[in-house]
Design a protein around this nucleic acid. Sequence first.
RNA 1: GGCCCCAUCGUAUAGUGGUUUAGUACACGUGGUUCUCAGCCACGUAACACCAGUUCAAAUCUGGUUGGGGCCA
Length: 524
Amino acid sequence: MIEDFKFIKPGEVRVRIAPAPTGLLHIGTARTALFNYLFAKKNQGSFILRIEDTDIERIDPRAEKDIMENLKWLGIEWTEGPDIGGEYGPYRQSQRLEIYAKYLEKLLAEDKAYYCFCSEEELEAEKQYKMSIGEPPRYSGKCAQLSKEEVQKRLAEGQPSIIRFRVPAKKVEFEDLIRGKIEFDASLIGDIVIAKDLATPLYNFAVVIDDFEMKISHVIRGEDHISNTPKQILIQEALGFPRPIYAHLPLILGPDRTKLSKRHGAIAISEYKKRGYLPEALVNFMAFLGWNPGTEREIYSMASLIKEFSLERVQKGGAIFNIKRLDFLNGFYIRQKSIEKLTELCLPYLIEAGLIEPVFKEESKVSELPTAFFGTEIVQKYEIAETKEEISLEFLRKIISIYQERLKKLSEISELTDFFFKDKLDYDKELLRWKEMTDEEIRSSLDKLEKILSRIKTEDWTKENLENILMPEAEKMADRGMLLWPLRAALTGKEASAGPFEIAEILGKEKTIKRIKEARGLIK
RNA sequence: GGCCCCAUCGUAUAGUGGUUUAGUACACGUGGUUCUCAGCCACGUAACACCAGUUCAAAUCUGGUUGGGGCCA
C-alpha cells in the first residue's frame, strides 16, 4: 500500500538488484540499479547486490566482475553482497541451494507443490493447441492428482520430472507504487514450474525465497516483471511470507519502441565507458529516463538525485533511449571538468590512437593498455610516438583546453588533436583554398604569413600577440578568411579545428613556420 | 492467441478540472559571435491518438476504440 510506504522508517528500506551474470552490465540493469540505489540512499536503507547464477549454461565467467566494476564506476555502491556483509548471505544463488531445497520440500510435503512427469514435447504440443483455440496456454494439471505411491514409483524409476506449484484459482491483486492497483486472475495461469529438481530452483521461486530471507522491503524492477508478480505473491502466500512493496519501472526502449536489447547496438556500460562517456553524464541521463524532478532543472549530480528522487515521480510509459541527449549531457560534463582532470581522462585515448606513448619505469609491469596518467607510479614520462620527443604535461593540457568545449566524447580527442603529434601533415592542397581564392592568392597569403611570423621573437610567441599582429593584416584583405583559413589549414590539415592563433601558440614558432612552408610547397 | 501495462512536440518530459495562445531540455532550422568547427546568445518549427460521456469548464475525470509494449519455464 502506498500509505504503508509513507511510514517507512529510516533504515527499514532494503532493496536489491539481482542480475544474472550472463553478460556485461547493460543500460537497463544499470538504470534499475540506479533507481534502487537512489531510493535506498534517500531512505537511509540498504542496497543489496545478489547474483542470480543458477542457470549454469548461460553464465559468463567474466560477467560478475564486469557488473560490479561498472556499477562502481557509475558510483552505484551496494551495501551488501556478493562479498560484502553476510548476515543475510550468501548472496550468490548457486551458494544457496540448500535453502531453496528446504522450502521446496516444505511445499511438497504440504502438497502445495507436486512432481510433474510430462515431457517437454507433450507440454509444447498442449500449449500450441491451447493457443490455437484461443485459450490461455496453461498447464492442464495432468500430474496434479498423481498419488503419493505413483510419484514415488516414477521417481524411483528415474523418470524425468519437474516440480510444479499448485496455483490456487483466485484473484491476485497488488498495489504498485508506480501504477496503483494491478489485478490478475490466477486461474488463468495454471500450475507453474518452480524447480527442475530439488537442487535446481527456477527464477520465480528463487526470487521469492531470496527476497524473504534477505528481508527485502521494496522490489523495484523493470515492468517486464509485472506478470511474474502474481506468481511470486502466490508462492509467498503459500509459504506464509510477508509481501514486499512493489514498484515496476517503465522499460528503456530502442528507437523502434521495443525493449532495449543487443540488436539496438551498444548497451553495455563498459562500451559507453570505452567510447568516452563520463559516469556523471550516464547517471544524469539514466535518471531522467522515466523520472524527473518536476522542476525545469536538468542537471543533476548523484548527490542531488539522491536528495530529489522519489518513486512517485516515476513515469509509467516506456522511455526511448535517445543518444543525442546523452551526447549533449556528456559534452556538458566534459566542459565542467578541470583541465587537469580532463587531461588525465583523455590520455588513454591518445595512447590508444598511437599518438603518444608512455615510458614506464619498469617495463615488466606493463601487460595491457594503461589507463595510467601523469603522476602514476609506473609512468615515467610521455613522448610523442612518432618522434620520441618528450612532451610536458603543460603541453598536453594546453591542447586539451582548446578542445574542451568541442568534445562530446573523450574518444574524439585523438582525431581532433592528432596534428599536434604528427611530424608531417597529409592533406590535399585544395584544403588551403578559402572560397574562390586563386593559387596566386593562397601563395601570397602563405608568403605574407611566413614573413610576418618569422619576425616575431620566440618569447613573444603568444596567442594574444599573434592575434594582435595578424588580425590587422587579415582585416586589410577583402575577406579575413583569405589569410586565416590558409593559416589554420596549413597548421592543422583539417577543415575544422580550434582557432589558428591558439594552435600556433601551442605548436611553437618553429613548427608553425615549418608547416606554412610545407603548405607553400603544395602550391606550385 | 490469452493476460497485464502504457499513450502530451521527432526524443525526454512539465502539466493532478479554469492561471495554457500547452512550458522546458535535447535534436532540428535561421541569425549573431574574429576563417572553419565547437561553445555561447537570440529567434523559430513542432504535441494533448481517436470517439463518446460527466461538467459552466477536460490534456487533466469516466467508458469505449485504436495503437504500442511486456509476459506466457
